[in-house]
Amino acid sequence: MQDKQSAPGEESPSVEPPTGARHPRWLTALLAAGALLAAALLGATGGLLLADAQDDGSAETPNAVDVGFAQDMTVHHLQGVTMASWVRDHSSDPAIRQLAFDIESGQTEQVGRMQGWLGLWSRASLPSGEHMGWMSDAGHAGHAQATPDDAGRPMPGMATTKELARLRSLSGAELDVYFLQLMIRHHQGGGPMMRAALDKAEMGEVRNLAEKMLTAQTAEIEAMTAMLTERGTKPLPAPL
């Protein structure tokens, strides 16, 4: 389990490494905007390369899985960036801050890439209907079975508004543990989308990105689980 649309009351992600003194708020915002612009430009550059391939007839045409994955994974990633940027700025544990920075910067770059593809394909940047409906085209179930605990989750693994508010209310070891628990579940919830894209996406670039995401987030889940064990606790129940 990287362009960000913050929910009301949430801070914009800062992107400087987790070292030293804090920058003024205006400089943090400027750095964040610059990083998101760089990510978008990277995605656009990739799009131009794809466009050249399409002009000579050598590229595939994106299918519903390509488009749906890019749109829904953008939404999923943006929440991951939101959580990671908050903890990167508020944790006092260097290991947690480094992990949060890595997740924040990596997923911001991936969002820029996916948004570049969607722009190239002349598709909306975000989904307009039900999340994960495209997964039926990939032979995977869409939404997990809803339960009372799932109320307010746009997609499996995502935190609810109440959970995000709790994260922002904590500090110290409690903040670190809850972040690890939420992020493990967040990564687990995105896994089925990555596997569906890896299986059924038409575009080689989409399959490649989904594979890289799955590999990286599997390793991060293992690392975060070990960090929880060191702190004498364990992950939340995995999403259905």
Results as ranks from 00 to 15, higher is better:
A33T: 13
G34R: 04
G34W: 02
A35Q: 11
A35P: 01
A35G: 13
A35K: 10
L36T: 15
L36K: 15
L36Q: 15
L37H: 06
A39P: 01
A39D: 07
A39L: 09
A40H: 09
A40G: 12
A40C: 08
A40D: 14
L41C: 06
L41V: 15
L42M: 14
L42V: 14
G43C: 14
G43K: 00
A44E: 12
T45S: 08
G46L: 09
G46N: 10
G47R: 07
G47C: 01
L49T: 10
L49C: 07
L50Q: 15
A51D: 07
D52Q: 15
A53K: 07
A53F: 14
Q54Y: 12
D55S: 06
D55H: 09
D55F: 11
D56L: 12
D56G: 07
G57A: 09
G57L: 04
G57P: 09
S58K: 07
S58Q: 06
S58P: 13
A59Q: 14
A59S: 13
E60T: 13
E60I: 13
T61W: 08
P62A: 06
N63E: 08
A64V: 08
A64G: 14
A64L: 04
V65W: 10
D66G: 04
D66F: 03
D66N: 05
D66T: 06
D66I: 04
V67F: 09
V67P: 10
G68E: 03
G68S: 11
F69D: 05
F69G: 02
A70R: 01
A70Y: 02
A70C: 11
A70N: 08
Q71P: 03
Q71F: 07
Q71E: 07
Q71A: 04
M73F: 02
M73G: 07
T74L: 05
V75F: 10
H76P: 04
H76W: 01
H76M: 05
H77L: 02
Q79M: 12
G80C: 07
G80T: 01
V81I: 11
V81F: 01
T82Y: 14
T82I: 09
T82P: 08
M83I: 05
M83Y: 12
A84L: 10
A84D: 03
S85D: 15
S85G: 12
S85M: 06
S85Q: 05
S85T: 01
W86S: 05
W86A: 01
R88D: 11
R88L: 12
D89F: 05
D89M: 05
D89N: 08
S91G: 11
S91Y: 00
S91I: 00
P94E: 13
P94H: 12
P94C: 15
I96L: 15
I96D: 07
I96H: 03
I96C: 03
R97F: 01
R97S: 01
R97D: 01
Q98S: 11
L99A: 14
A100G: 09
A100H: 10
F101Y: 11
F101M: 05
D102H: 03
D102W: 02
I103V: 00
I103F: 03
